[in-house]
């Protein structure tokens, strides 16, 4: 069980680094969407640094697991993951939304290595994930497809069309993660277009569902493992209960932080909070301090597991 503890500690640190990078990107660009980036940071960390079978040095590897950010506006958190994984040089992490950048305001698969499909117009990415998953089945490949969809995004009818095709084609290689942060732009989801109970809805649409705390790394990992193990022909849905803006106190659960950049003071305060986050005293003593050391620790873990 020690190894699970280490994995969790490592991934939490990773998620923290992703948040710091994303915040820096949005601050430097003075534009972007911090709220919904932070709500999925832990899940993105778990996927890119633990779960997904990917090769950063070969982004087009045919057997790779796919990642679809259907809610494309929060791409800085994924750019951070791609950058930290080595899909491209770290210097790119300072070019968000700039002229000529590979890091477009919304993800562009033609410009940025590691982006499996271009997104930005809500409601469309999940259909593309379905297409990738169907191809995986037809080509008898083992890869899996992970799609992150917003709870506001679930307003789009196309999401439900995609959900129906995933069931029809028995896509147990598809994992739909709903970022249930309860906020969209003009208000809470309950005010604008209540989702009522997404787990029950997805269950009724034939998915195998999991209700989780999207910031509990242990639960994230355990659920991803269950998704992987379950080859029952049913697509998977992780209804991740999250907090928009998670990790920076003044952004948490705040509608206003959907799509604005922090000023210098807010940025510094945010970075400070992120640096100090989750550093309980015992952890501080036990855990390696740099990302590189974590990576080393991770390698050991991986080696041990195999």
């Amino acid at each position: 069980m020690k190894s699970m503890e280490k994995r969790v500690a490592y991934l939490r640190e990773r998620a923290k680094e992703l948040r710091k990078s994303a915040l820096t990107m949005i601050y430097e660009a003075q534009s972007g969407h911090p709220g919904g980036a932070f709500s999925i940071a832990d899940i993105v960390a778990a996927l890119y640094f633990d779960e997904m079978n990917i090769r950063p040095e070969d982004p087009q590897w045919a057997d790779r697991d796919r990642f679809v950010l259907s809610k494309g506006h929060v791409c800085p958190i994924v750019y951070a993951a791609l950058g930290h994984k080595g899909y491209f040089g770290q210097e790119h992490l300072h070019t968000l939304r700039q002229e000529g950048a590979i890091l477009q305001g919304h993800p562009c698969m033609k410009k940025c290595p590691g982006i499996d499909i271009s997104t930005g117009s809500l409601g469309q990415g999940l259909s593309c994930a379905v297409g990738m998953a169907i191809a995986g089945k037809r080509d008898k490949k083992d890869y899996r497809v992970f799609a992150v969809v917003g709870d506001g995004e679930c307003n789009e009818g196309q999401i439900w069309e995609a959900i129906m095709s995933a069931y029809t084609y028995k896509l147990d290689n598809l994992v739909l993660v709903i970022d249930n942060n309860r906020l969209q732009i003009d208000g809470t989801c309950d005010e604008i277009m209540p989702n009522i109970d997404l787990t029950r809805k997805l269950e009724a649409f034939g998915f195998e569902t999991f209700d989780i705390d999207g910031h509990d790394m242990e639960e994230i990992l355990a659920t991803l493992a269950k998704c992987k193990a379950s080859k029952n022909g049913r697509p998977k849905c992780i209804n991740a209960h999250t907090i928009k803006g998670k990790g920076v106190s003044f952004m948490e659960d705040e509608l206003a932080w959907h799509g604005i950049a922090p000023n210098q003071e807010q940025y510094e305060q945010g970075m400070k909070e992120l640096r100090e986050a989750w550093c309980s005293e015992e952890n501080e003593e036990e855990d390696p301090t740099t990302v590189e050391e974590y990576l080393e620790g991770m390698k050991e873990l991986e080696g041990g597991a195999k």
Partner: peptide, 11 residues
């Protein structure tokens, strides 16, 4: 038009 400039081509 091009006025949602830094959002990129999608917008």
């Amino acid at each position: 038009g091009l006025t949602p400039a830094n959002d990129g081509a999608s917008h």
